[in-house]
């Protein structure tokens, strides 16, 4: 299994997420994460999909099936182009006064931020690649993790050419 990040530009219309998610379930594709948001063009939404596939052929199937949807303007496989990938995670860890200093050190090493502190816990925010986020969650497993929220990966191509022109 290999994971690829697809940047999918779609019309900003109601129903488009149903069409995309319906296709994924209908064709039994494996999705690691999916996120969507506005773009520089108010008519266009960008959907970021991390897809896991067994083979290149399966990946081609995902891309060509997605491309067939009427609402979809463009599908680009960012993992195959020079690109930057980021994911944001927020982790709530149980931490009393005693453990706080230790946690601050860990967070600093990973260049994260502590965005909330109470007497019982802290909330840590980290941005980075999947690998970095996996690494910090592994370290934090020594503490008592209360909950985790991850955005899934988003990405941009490097250089001047945007996805819409690729």
């Amino acid at each position: 299994m290999r994971t690829y990040l697809l940047a999918v530009l779609v019309n900003n219309t109601p129903g488009v997420l149903t069409h995309v998610s319906g296709l994924i379930s209908r064709r039994a594709f494996n999705i690691e994460s999916i996120s969507a948001g506005y773009t520089e063009d108010e008519n266009v939404t960008r959907i970021n999909i991390e897809v896991s596939v067994e083979s290149e052929n399966e990946l081609d199937q995902v891309v060509s099936q997605l491309s067939k949807l009427i609402d979809i303007i463009k599908v680009v496989n960012l993992s195959k182009a020079p690109s930057i990938e980021r994911e944001l995670v927020m982790i709530k860890v149980r931490a009393t006064k005693k453990e706080r200093a230790d946690l601050v050190n860990v967070v600093n090493v990973f260049r994260g931020n502590i965005v909330d502190i109470t007497s019982e816990n802290v909330v840590i925010e980290i941005t980075g690649t999947k690998r970095k986020i996996d690494a910090i969650t592994e370290v934090l497993a020594e503490y008592d993790i209360v909950e985790i929220a991850r955005t899934g990966a988003i990405g941009l191509s490097r250089g001047p050419v945007p996805v819409k022109a690729m």
Binding site: P14, G15, T18, H19, G22, L23, S25, R26, L69, I70, D71
Partner: peptide
């Protein structure tokens, strides 16, 4: 209707 017909149509509208 759009939910049900999404996998069996080329496109649908509400």
């Amino acid at each position: 209707v759009c939910g049900i017909t999404t996998p069996i149509t080329k496109h649908n509208y509400l």
